[in-house]
Write a protein that binds this DNA or RNA. Structure first.
Length: 223
DNA sequence: GCGACAG
DNA sequence: ATCTTGTCGC
């Protein structure tokens, strides 16, 4: 299996390919959400990708893949754990999304290469990183209203690596960062637009739901 | 050395 | 991630 040092070397190489400016289609029709589900009492993980109509949020397609984990959870090397099931699921899609929102950081990462960057560079697709909690970086006061945001600044060089974004009034923020082929401002606006009713964007909520179903189905069928 | 640490 | 229902507080 891949060693920690090898994984870090891969990140250092691939990070140079990340594009932090908008390079999306003129019109976004299909947006994708991804999530990975872990089984409580085995080493199975299920990844799901859900395709939604950008304006109506109607589900267009879902693809999932369940398998054994191939890499341990190490903060900073998260993508090596979650990429395999997500890539397998992505291969099953017969329609491609214009943009993907994944559940984890992009540039808001120790080496500026979180899951969203790794997925974006690998698929050569626009990807937004949207994490539920912070991995690194510091941010200042955040106002209470929906849509309030604060810059997330790296501890080492003080560079802007993401935004803490309040998607609902008085609720903990989510952490938005560039994955690939999108700017931070565009990424932030899209996450806010997709978080219509809850803290997390609908893409993530729906992907989470299907990943759970995929895990249950896989376990049931393997009996 | 200690704490923090996406899921 | 996974433990998980009712309960405390605004």
């Amino acid at each position: 299996m891949l060693t920690t040092a090898e994984a870090i070397a891969i990140q250092e190489t691939l990070k140079q390919q990340v594009i932090c400016t908008d390079q999306l289609p003129a019109t976004i029709n299909i947006i994708a959400g991804t999530d990975v589900e872990y089984d409580k009492d085995s080493s199975l993980i299920a990844g799901s990708i859900v395709l939604l109509h950008y304006e109506t949020l109607e589900v267009i397609a879902v693809a999932s893949h369940c398998m054994e984990v191939t890499f341990p959870y190490i903060p900073g090397l998260f993508s090596f754990r979650e990429m395999p099931p997500l890539l397998r699921a992505y291969e099953k899609l017969t329609v491609q999304p214009d943009l993907i929102i994944c559940d984890g950081q992009g540039l808001a990462h120790q080496r500026r290469f979180g899951l969203a960057c790794h997925l974006g560079v690998t698929l050569d697709k626009p990807v937004i990183g949207c994490g539920k909690t912070r991995l690194c970086g510091q941010y200042g006061p955040l106002d209470e209203p929906r849509g309030s945001m604060a810059g997330l600044y790296a501890e080492d060089d003080q560079s802007l690596i993401g935004h803490a974004l309040r998607t609902q009034a008085g609720i903990n923020p989510v952490f938005v960062s560039v994955g690939h082929k999108i700017s931070l401002d565009t990424a932030t606006a899209i996450v806010l637009k997709m978080a219509t009713q809850y803290r997390l964007p609908e893409t993530t909520r729906i992907a989470d739901h299907y990943a759970r179903l995929a895990m249950e189905a896989y376990k049931e069928q393997s009996k």
